[in-house]
Write a protein that binds this DNA or RNA. Sequence first.
RNA 1: GGAGAGAUGGCCGAGUCGGCUGAAGGCGCUCGCCUGCUAAGCGAGUGUGGGGGGAAACUUCCACCGAGGGUUCGAAUCCCUCUCUCUCCGCCA
Length: 471
Amino acid sequence: MPPFLRAEPRAQGLWVLFCFNVSSGSPPSRRGICFHIQMTVRIVMLEIKFVRQNLTEVQNAMAARGEGLKLDTFIQIDEKRREVLVQIESLRHRRNVVSDQIAKLKKSGENADDLVLEMRDVSVQIKEMDGALSEFEASLHEILMGLPNLPHSSVPKGTDSSQNPVVRRVGEPRSFDFVPEAHWTVGERLGILDFERASKIAGARFPLYLGAGARLERALINFMLDVHTIEHGYKEVLPPFIVNRAAMTATGQLPKFAADLFKLEGWDFFLIPTAEVPVTNIHQGEVLDEDSLPLLYAAYTPCFRSEAGSYGKDTRGLIRQHQFNKVELVKFTTPETSYDELEKLLSNAESILRRLELPFHVVNLCTGDLGFSASKTYDIEVWLPAQGVYREISSCSNFENFQARRADIRYRRKGKNKTELVHTLNGSGLAVGRTVAAILENYQQADGSVTIPKALRPYMGNMERIENREA
RNA sequence: GGAGAGAUGGCCGAGUCGGCUGAAGGCGCUCGCCUGCUAAGCGAGUGUGGGGGGAAACUUCCACCGAGGGUUCGAAUCCCUCUCUCUCCGCCA
């Protein structure tokens, strides 16, 4: 096996390993490895061509993101690779031609021994050069998989989140005639959240919802899914919560961000950090009909994140958890429509907050704050009165063809034979735990109870407020 | 977990004892013709990735028949390993 097919993720040291209790005692599954190899080869090709053709653009974009990347290494290796490739191909050409001659000679009963001997030599040469070629491709692959997406021209320049311009502000933060309390205080006092017991079960950064709290979480999931499927036209999907390496690589979590993921010990499986991964991979390796685009999916899934490196941040409450629920929106579109679809996606996500009457604002992530795979991202940030800040509750991104390249998702334009890469988008619609946090904080009353937003009451058996005895 | 069958182009589906099979046939799609309209019919074209040449249309070469490896001058065809799918039995939420 050429070395580039064995590429192992770097940061294993940080991985939090989960142990699956396999009662059958079966060995670790190899599922997914095969897919990965198949995809890797294709990815290398797609990416090399793309980078070579857009070299200056790539270089500028990397600079804007603050990535100090030297692409001259890439160019050098790519040149060597092509050099070897040309030699291999001419040898193979010769072998093909001569093999044909041999066939003809043998058919007519003539002797071809010297040709056979010569070709035996050529085949050995080809094999040797193949080894060299694999080395070059391994290096290129490593560089390419570490390259982030190119920011769209409408993305503001900036170095960090402080430079993200606010696009709009919706809803007025309520004025309290008492000091609003943090959602964990509100929730624990009502007996609907219990972080202490959760830590017995799992540890820090895990939620335990009880009574009306658990119901509130479930109501929000149903509410969000209903709005998106019935009113916004998304198709509901319920995907696997565990995915293989190929899927994680396609959406961009791997190989670079292994440290953020939970990996199953002894298996090449990962817990999903977002529904984006399984849902985007629904169409991995497919050629879609233009007529079927845009494809809109809405999925509820739990999400699992190691939150490595966030020690000391948001240690209390529902904001930063190893496990949380999310309703995710995913789109597959044509290149021309993807930015319109991004605006629609954003407004679909916003509509949940509008209906829940929670104040929020939308920011346009600047180049320095943009995620690895995204070309453009809007964050929706909800108002949390106890902290007095807006906190991210949804992130809506256009990945253009970045994920489509890695996942090999194409479509055929009507009347054309050539396939093109689709554009993929996704956004939270919304993070459920953070929505609960926002409701508890924004709807808390002086007596410690919490009013339930009107839009949600049908999903709560018409309950109007959560009081202590409800719990 | 045990036994068996299979994996070929956008889809379905042939591939003989290894040698013009990148791959028959069909569907779909595109263009053209025909036809009051539609349907049907006729003709031509229609995989992907990569290297070279060309401003381009295009052209040429290489690779790819689940994946990897092996045998061979030569593999979709033979051998090994793996993955996935299907059927039957067992077990289980």
